Simulated assay, not measured.
Amino acid sequence: MIRRVFLGLLVVCAAALPLRLQAGSGEPPPAGSIRFDVHYGSQGFKVGEASHQWTLADGRYELQLTLEARGLAGLFGLQYAQRSVGTLDRSGLRPELFTVDQRGRKTESAHFDWKAARVSIRRDGVERRAGEIGAGAQDLLSLWHQARRIAVGQEPARLTVVTSKSVKKAVLEPLGKETLSLPIGRVEALRVRAYAEEGGLDIDIWLSEQHGLLPVRIRIEDEKGGVLDQRAAQVDVGSPGTAAETKTK
């Protein structure tokens, strides 16, 4: 079950008809990192930690996520790194390359060809499948930051979300404001749900109003009901490696 949840993070979701996205309130810091406590199951047992870094500058972005499982979860080799790079424009993030490096597995990647409106999904450099993309398409990691674009809106958006496994139609739905109690403290957040219309993807993303709508909680539920829940334990903003800790009371 644990393996299915973690592998669910790597599923490629994609879709077709982009809707007009709305800008969220405030701007995210141009660089920084978030450390998450990673919990699994209905009882919320902590199984490890994840570290997310981002840089948004000069019309480009780079995002990274490194997840380290511990204890029994670590025995399954559930350590991986995701990376997303691309450009920034008025519509938000526009991915060019998404990669996944998982212990004991060959590198998986998604290559975006915007001129051809096509994404190539590869393993160890060899194309395994391909799919169509349209305006607003995201990968599974860039989705964390793109979600802020519709968080303050009233209508859901259809979009293409790409990881390293498959292509599916997905919906990004704003669910309003909630108060969270996280390791970093009490946080007012806007909640957005991302789900595939035909199943295989169900993610809730909470964006902190105190931190420029940065993602401070990400909850993934698989088709079997298994839950992976990442909760922010520390938020650093500033230059990578020299960021000052942001404490929320």
Rank of each mutant, 00 (worst) to 15 (best):
A137Q: 09
L10W: 02
A233N: 01
L97S: 05
A50V: 04
V167W: 03
G32K: 03
Q64M: 11
R103H: 09
L214A: 11
R158P: 00
D58R: 13
E96M: 11
R122V: 05
W114R: 14
P240H: 05
T66Y: 09
A23I: 02
E245F: 04
L207Q: 01
R83D: 02
L172R: 03
S166T: 07
V192S: 08
A194N: 10
A151W: 04
E155N: 08
V38R: 08
S33K: 14
R217L: 08
E155V: 10
K106V: 04
D236C: 09
A151G: 08
W206N: 00
F45T: 08
V38I: 11
V11L: 13
G185D: 08
R90W: 10
R105Q: 15
W206C: 02
L7G: 06
S25L: 12
L143Q: 07
A194L: 14
K168V: 11
S25R: 11
D139C: 07
A233F: 01
L65H: 10
G92Q: 09
P183C: 12
D229K: 04
T107L: 12
Y80M: 05
L56S: 01
P174Y: 07
C13F: 05
K46G: 10
Y40D: 00
G200W: 09
R4C: 04
F98P: 01
R35S: 14
G241Y: 10
L228P: 01
R217F: 10
G212S: 14
E209N: 06
G176V: 01
V5C: 11
Q64V: 05
L228Q: 04
A50N: 05
L182H: 02
R105L: 13
V47F: 08
T248I: 15
L180S: 03
K247N: 07
V119R: 06
P28H: 09
F112I: 01
E223H: 03
L17M: 02
L72Y: 06
L10S: 08
R123V: 13
W114V: 06
D124H: 09
M1G: 14
G238E: 06
E68A: 13
Y61P: 02
I184D: 04
W144R: 00
V38W: 13
E197D: 10
K168E: 08
V167C: 11
E68C: 02
A73N: 01
V227G: 02
E68H: 15
G59C: 11
Q82L: 15
M1R: 02
K46P: 05
L19K: 03
D202P: 00
L9W: 10
A157V: 15
L10K: 06
E209L: 15
